[in-house]
Write a protein that binds this DNA or RNA. Structure first.
Length: 332
DNA sequence: GGCCCTCTTTAGGGCCTT
């Protein structure tokens, strides 16, 4: 963990800057720590899975989810009972919040940072970061539909990943992109979006820290994933919770492309995966494969760009931000 | 469709998502 003073912030005047978000999660850390042990903090992490430690345990099981009375949002829905897949990934989070004694001592010497550190730690401790991705039948959020969605909670722990196919109630014409065929999703046992939304809300809520916010991360989130979610939620007459914030990794990748000395030429997800030498788990353009890749990319990007949690929050936006932005443009 | 860049801003084209 690197700590250095910083002078500018829209949140508060001066503050401490913590140049990595890695301490907020553990689920993926081991995957790139092996390749990118460039910091002593990461090098010293005792993470299950490294060097013959515990390995990730994956089990696939059908579940029945009941949402009645369990969603803390105003948009309560009828109880639903849908079979879908949850991939259990058991990953210890114990290493991520540990700070070495030396680091604490050095930190404590920065007297002027104490108040800011307290605020930072409070903010960080209340934040749940979730990487997500959707596959769709095309680019238009008006005429096309979501056919797959995947999420990964970066903090790790039980049920840290979620994925499901979605019944679009229309044919899939772009199978060549993701390999998802019409007969894979147009089935009665595949949930439609209106059935899935209450489950999604419950899943996110179950990982949300009381009083905290959720930070949902996606590549090209601002102009693709989030507008698609807004449209799908709207069709189901459900609002996206106001405590969901979104971060788009595309502008972050573009910052890295522009950075002096950077070898990243394009901001596409595939270029980022190549750039960081990430080994894919599964096929490209399948939601969970892209989520797992992006989870690693997000960690590397925030490290390379020296972004703290506050920096990321400054770049975040809400669903209502996009809706209001669109209304302004329409009226203007 | 929004963002970004430039041979620009009274515009146009490329990128990025499926």
């Amino acid at each position: 963990m690197m700590i250095a003073p910083m002078n500018v912030s829209i949140f508060q005047g001066s503050r401490c800057r913590i140049n990595t978000l890695a301490h907020l999660w553990s689920g993926n850390l081991h995957s790139w720590t092996r390749r990118y042990s460039t910091t002593s903090k990461l090098h010293d992490s005792k993470i299950p899975g490294i060097d013959g430690g515990n390995t990730k345990k994956w089990t696939r099981r059908p579940i029945t989810t009941k949402t009645e009375g369990s969603i803390e949002t105003p948009q309560r829905s009828k109880p639903s009972s849908i079979r879908h897949e949850v991939l259990d990934e058991t990953v210890s989070a114990s290493s991520t919040l540990n700070i070495g004694k030396t680091e604490i001592t050095q930190f404590q010497k920065l007297q002027y940072c104490d108040v800011q550190r307290e605020s930072y730690e409070k903010l960080a401790s209340l934040l749940t970061i979730i990487v997500f991705d959707i596959e769709t039948t095309g680019f238009s959020r008006e005429s096309e539909r979501i056919i797959e969605i995947a999420l990964q909670v970066l903090r790790g722990g039980k049920n840290s990943t979620f994925q499901t196919l979605v019944n679009p109630n229309k044919s899939v014409e772009n199978e060549r992109i993701h390999g998802i065929k019409t007969n894979m999703v147009n089935r009665p046992d595949v949930p439609r979006m209106k059935d899935l939304i209450p489950i999604l809300l419950q899943y996110v809520s179950s990982h949300q820290i009381p009083g905290g916010k959720v930070l949902l991360v996606a590549h090209n989130a601002r102009t693709f994933d989030v507008p698609f979610l807004i449209s799908e939620f709207s069709r189901s007459s459900i609002e996206i919770p106001s405590d969901w914030l979104f971060v788009d990794t595309l502008p972050l990748a573009r910052e890295l492309v522009k950075m002096e000395g950077s070898t990243l030429l394009k901001a596409k997800l595939e270029h980022l995966i190549d750039h960081y030498e990430i080994i894919r788990e599964g096929d490209a353009h399948r939601a969970m494969s892209d989520v797992k890749g992006l989870a690693l990319i997000f960690q590397r990007l925030t490290f390379d760009l020296k972004l703290s949690v506050l920096d990321i929050l400054e770049k975040s936006f809400s669903a209502s931000d996009l809706i209001n932005q669109k209304k302004k443009k329409s009226s203007g």
